[in-house]
Simulated assay, not measured.
Amino acid sequence: MPLCPHDKQLLDESASGFDCPACGRHFGSQPLCPECGEALKVLKACGAVDYFCKTHGMVSRSRAIVS
């Protein structure tokens, strides 16, 4: 999961987006590339979640941006 832009805690995925367990903020469901701001493709396999940018390749969950 991506990190909260406010307190850098891992976000929990919910049906309507992402929630920060530390500060209680809610974020949209689309993580963005930290380099270009484009929407990232979410890749899920065997319980792992990864992100892919068509311009910059793989993006770690700790670098993904949520808005």
Results as ranks from 00 to 15, higher is better:
D12A: 14
K41A: 15
C46N: 10
L43E: 11
P31Y: 02
V49R: 02
P5I: 02
H6M: 10
K8N: 14
V49W: 01
K54F: 13
L11D: 06
D12F: 10
G57D: 02
R63G: 08
D19W: 12
A48N: 14
A48P: 14
S62D: 09
S16Y: 04
M58A: 15
V42Y: 04
G47Y: 02
C53D: 05
P5F: 04
A22K: 09
M58R: 12
S29Q: 09
E35S: 15
R61T: 11
L10C: 10
V42K: 12
R25K: 15
L3F: 14
S62N: 09
H6N: 15
V59N: 03
L32M: 06
C53A: 04
G28N: 06
C4F: 02
Q30A: 13
F18Y: 13
Q30W: 12
E38L: 06
I65W: 13
A39G: 10
S16E: 07
F52Q: 12
C36P: 06
D7P: 09
G47I: 00
C46H: 10
F18I: 03
H56S: 05
G17I: 00
I65S: 07
F18A: 06
L10H: 15
M58K: 11
V59Y: 03
R61N: 12
Q9W: 05
D7L: 03
L43F: 15
G17C: 03
F27K: 01
F18C: 03
S29I: 07
L10S: 13
C20M: 03
S14A: 11
K41E: 15
R61H: 10
E13C: 07
C53R: 01
Q9R: 13
S60R: 09
A22P: 10
S67L: 10
A45D: 06
S16H: 07
C36T: 08
D19I: 14
C4G: 03
T55R: 05
A48I: 12
F18K: 07
V66T: 09
L43T: 15
K44M: 08
C46R: 07
G57R: 00
T55K: 09
G37I: 00
L32D: 03
V59C: 05
Y51F: 15
